[in-house]
Nucleic acid binder design. Structure first.
Lengths: 190, 190
DNA sequence: GGGTGCATGTAATGGGTTACATGATTCT
DNA sequence: AGAATCATGTAACCCATTACATGCACCC
């Protein structure tokens, strides 16, 4: 039973299950919805849509408009919905985490503590911003999509971000304190 | 000012800064040290070492032994150490998170709540195991490497795992409760 | 005039895993 | 007898980003 990878086409099907869209629309929507845990570039999206159309999982309609380039609107077919449901049932494949911050920190003793502190601070700021974004998104969603049956699921992904960024923030603070301690120890010895 | 990627060779340099090793050794060590936030396959390691040797950042010595294949021992050179330090100073490049669990959950309304619960439970078990591993590793490290000046840095990376997995666990529990609520709501309507 | 947004797509390139190929030793 | 471990390496393949190519409209 091979899963054959191919998460991208399934992600595209998922997004098109919300409403018909062009490749361009999809890119825009990603950054406003699943952008904090998923991304797709045009180099994946356009060929992906073509492939899905060839398999009959989406339907393409061309909208002509003066001035602007043609819009290629894709909508999901019943077969596409079925394929999406099948994929949703497959167990999540465990992904290998790759965290460059931790990699650098693991070898951090080779450089001054201040260097490591910079890295950690940058991370801290990133997650502080993220927390604000999640809060704003959750508020907006609850207003705009109050009646959508999918709302609870969307909020779950935001809640994940909240927990995750919160935990990293806490770790950052602990780590900064630890780095300070290392630095003052180093100074005392000089 | 281009960073030109290439995290793999730097990771290799970092590991070789601990002690001289063969490609095989490196793979083994990774799973016992940085395995929970970094991974390299042989297909990366062997060509990577070759490349580093060509640049004079590591030195290769061949150890012959009967029966077993030759061991190619690599040790880091002073140039290699300098290169490593340089890399450690470069700001961490923000990585695009890709979380398949969240992607599936985002579209979770298309399938039964029980399907999503399965995914979340699998994740929960993963992080429960992870927490135990981190605790064991921290204990072991404190015993074995009590005098190593790098110990605090190694513990920081473990502490990250502790915070991270702890947060995800908490989220899993909340999410499972939410999914149960969704399911019983669905049943009530039937 | 120049930047930004709309809109599509391809090609080059990079990064990484998996499968393959080889072969002896040691453990079960 | 067969599996696992030791040990090295290459080739094929997949996945993904970036750069390139095109071109109009609108705003400053």
């Amino acid at each position: 039973m091979k899963t054959k990878g191919g998460t991208t086409p399934n992600a595209l099907l998922g997004l098109l299950s919300l409403r018909p869209m062009s490749g361009y629309d999809i890119r825009q929507l990603i950054s406003k919805s699943i952008g904090h845990f998923w991304s797709e570039s045009y180099g994946q999206i356009y060929p992906g849509l073509k492939q899905l159309a060839a398999e009959g999982l989406v339907e393409k309609k061309t909208e002509r408009s003066k001035g602007k380039p043609d819009r290629h609107l894709y909508s999901i077919t019943p077969d596409g919905r079925e394929r999406l449901r099948e994929w949703l049932k497959i167990p999540v494949s465990e992904e290998v985490a790759r965290n460059e911050l931790l990699l650098k920190l693991f070898f951090g003793a080779h450089v001054a503590a201040s260097v490591n502190r910079e890295h950690v601070m940058a991370n801290m700021e990133f997650h502080q911003r993220a927390l604000k974004v999640y809060a704003a998104m959750a508020k907006q969603l609850r207003l705009d999509e109050a009646n959508d049956p999918q709302l609870p699921y969307w909020l779950m992904t935001l809640n994940y971000g909240r927990h995750y960024s919160g935990a990293v923030l806490k770790w950052c603070k602990e780590t900064l304190a630890e780095l300070d301690a290392i630095e003052s120890k180093g100074k005392r010895r000089q």
